[in-house]
Design a protein around this nucleic acid. Structure first.
Lengths: 175, 175
DNA sequence: TACAATTAATGGGCATGGCAATTATTTTGA
DNA sequence: TCAAAATAATTGCCATGCCCATTAATTGTA
């Protein structure tokens, strides 16, 4: 189906061997960023016919895994995302009748989040699609290799969670 | 420095073991997408003091690795991105005097792209920062593990480049 | 109790990137 | 040779997500 104005990457990408380029030490960087975007777009397209988006899908999945009545702040923390971004997604999910916000009886600032039955049903359908996409994209990797890959990604994610070294040298040697 | 409205992921992420959740087969999906965003944001923050953005950095690097006088279409293909997205980035880079568009003498629709000397100089500075970020994020992984990681990512990227199976069942079994 | 600091949720502004459509040019083919 | 199809670059529009500021409520403290 549609592929926008994206020209075929006819071997051009393969031609460029970043590792032996004048830019060593960035081989992971470009691939991680590109893969993040590519994977997302792919999933987005597959979800489209169901009316769901990736942005809405992730919170739903996490919600289903968390305790009922979680606060928005907690969900945002789990998603490692911004609370303000979450607000807008929840607006959509709530309007679609998939999620419910109920005021917290103790803390009147907070909301308790619940997935509706319709939400649970939809979520299972989305999950099938998501799992199929992952299977397609990881095709050719053995189960062991996938486990290993996940471990590496987790490692890097953990590194990223640490504070950035010491971001002091504002005008460092890099002009 | 700033971290917006993002609440601390106080072990919540770790608590959620996606692999043993009711959503098997999505362990790579969430990590890849999240890591893409996290890595990008991290690099974005480090580049900020230099006035460069990730969006502009990537095309510059690729341009330096490609033949002089590449067309925008070719660059977009190499970046695996949309030509329309590239147009706007090039506008900025050209305004900053880092890149130059010259009309193709043969095909009057096309432009030939060139990096200016200033562009090359800047690019080297950006590269130092990018390499440092990658070093920080991959800390704790051995050289061999990084090579392996790159190979896995490359494998998945190749899978993603293939057409999506057969996207026929529009209204499939997934309600 | 009053008052400052913190916190949950929200809204505004902005950059990025994807898709659709438009324009100008080139290529194809009847 | 002329019209139709394809193509390079561009613009418009929109979703996503980050950062900053605001509001309402809570907590801590003098």
């Amino acid at each position: 189906m549609t592929d926008g104005n994206r020209p075929q990457a006819t071997g051009l990408r393969a031609l460029l061997n970043i590792d032996e380029s004048p830019f060593p030490g960035m081989s992971v960087t470009f691939r991680v960023m590109r893969l993040g975007a590519v994977w997302r777009t792919r999933l987005e397209r597959e979800l489209k016919p169901t009316g769901m988006t990736v942005a809405g899908f992730r919170p739903m999945v996490y919600l289903m895994m968390m305790q009922e009545g979680t606060s928005q702040r907690e969900l945002a923390a789990a998603l490692d995302t911004d609370t303000s971004a979450l607000v807008r997604v929840l607006d959509l999910l709530e309007a679609a009748g998939l999620v419910e916000r109920r005021p917290d009886s103790v803390d009147r600032r907070a909301n308790n989040l619940f997935i509706t039955d319709a939400g649970r049903r939809k979520c299972r359908a989305f999950h099938e699609i998501g799992a199929r996409v992952e299977a397609e994209l990881t095709e050719g990797l053995s189960a062991g290799e996938i486990v290993e890959l996940v471990a590496r990604l987790e490692h890097v994610l953990a590194n990223a969670a640490r504070p950035p070294a010491a971001d002091m040298p504002a005008g460092g040697e890099a002009a």
